[in-house]
Amino acid sequence: MSSFFRMDPAETCDPLSNFEPAEYDTELERALAEDPIAEIDAKPYLQISPHASVLEAVEMLHDSGAASLLVVDGEHLVGIFTERDVLEKVVEKYPRVCGQPVENFMTTNPTIVYQSDPSAAAAAAIAVAGHRHVPVLDMDECVQGVISPKRMFAFMQKHF
């Protein structure tokens, strides 16, 4: 059986000999397709424990002026709590729920991107899926930041 894998060196050829690298019409097309999300400014970001109260979360949003909090247990993302969650789930019953843990009102399983994904993946999460805040993880699933439309546009503007 070992001879099965034996090849005549004259018959071998470079499997990448026909490879043609992608061509782009503009620098922005190239950046979206090839530059990793790590190139996009994803910091600063705020995080909160899932066991923190809604009151603490609203205070953090108020004091920081940020629009989202990443809900992190240990080092791992378990959800995201945004201004939209306040509008949809909290504001009309705030006096009753402000002492409850934020994990009861956060958005679970948010759409995430990895630092090594192409930057177009973050644009897709914003434009196609309609998310305003897209958490960025590294390959160990640890939180590295959050991308907003403004940060995405700022990245694009560098490649105009």
């Binding site: 922005l28 097309e29 979206l32 397709a33 399983n109 948010p110 759409t111 995430i112 990895y114 994904d117 192409p118 177009a120 993946a121 644009a123 897709a124 999460a125 914003i126 434009a127 196609v128 899926a129 309609g130 305003r132 907003s148 439309p149 403004k150 995405m152 546009f153 694009m156």
Partner: peptide
Amino acid sequence: GQRGLAEYVCDCYAKQIAVQRLGSAP
């Protein structure tokens, strides 16, 4: 606003953006 511009960008660069996988899992 932000959403309108994001959708416009997606239309302009559909070959790069609209083909991306999305989700909460790797």
